[in-house]
Amino acid sequence: MNKIRIIKPGLLSTIQDAGRWGFQKYGMPVSGAMDLYSLKLANELVGNDPSEACIEATMNGPSVEFLHDCYISVCGADMQAIINGNSIEMYRTILVNKGSNLSFKGLKTGLRSYIAFAGGVNVPLVMGSKSTYLRGKIGGFHGRKLQKGDEIEIGTYNKNLDFKKILKNKIPVFKDHFVARIIPGPEANCFTVKGLADFLNSEYTLTEQCDRMGYRLAGTKIEHKLSADIISSGIAFGTVQVPSHGEPIIMMADRQTIGGYARIGNIISEDLPYLAQLKPGDKIRFKEIKLNEI
């Protein structure tokens, strides 16, 4: 059985796939990779199913020792990956030899990196998914973030894998500001004309209160017509809720299944990976788009 060993876990490294679908009606969050596009690219490069599990590293990456030869790829945030001290290129297939060490010098752009392993990550499926749901302590590696000394099994794979590279025009560029396209939500009409205009014309700052569950933004307060509370109902990845304090909250991968605040809009799926790569202090603007314009 092929294995890797975690020498240093990094700030927050978890196993994530494309999400745990099918149990939201029981209150089970979907979870999964925050940046689903990078997850997909990383898997493609090592011949995996696009929704296979990867390690999602946050802010500062882990240090990983390979106990066997393995093909890997690194996509998403640029944390300056190195193998045995030598820089490696992101967005391409890399053969790592037994005994080698993958680590990261430091974050340059983005926030979350995805490390894919040919053959995938061999953790048990919990309710159909390998994703870690930290609050529920389930999935991934024993339901928790990776720790020093963890030995994780890697799947078997074709030893004659083709080396691939992602074309430059398909590689996303992550900056410290982003304009997110948003489709008006079911409660868009619960806001005053001024409130909606403020929402679309202001710049918001991502606060420190941002995690895999949701992002709290700071900026111009958005005015409701009457109340911010709705009859609790479903929310999706990228739903923007505005509680009575007037500052928006964006629901992310570990979002709860039900929300109780006015849903002003929903960020389109193509833009969510960029959002997943923002850091506290980064700037967000919103641009309205209609569903039929995508």
């Binding site: 079911p186 109902s233 479903g234 999706a236 929903n266 569903l291």
Partner: peptide
């Protein structure tokens, strides 16, 4: 029927609980 982004939508059945 009300869209909630480009991968989900809501079916509104009634107005209260």
């Amino acid at each position: 029927y009300l869209p909630l982004g480009d991968k989900a939508f809501l079916v509104k059945i009634g107005n209260g609980i």
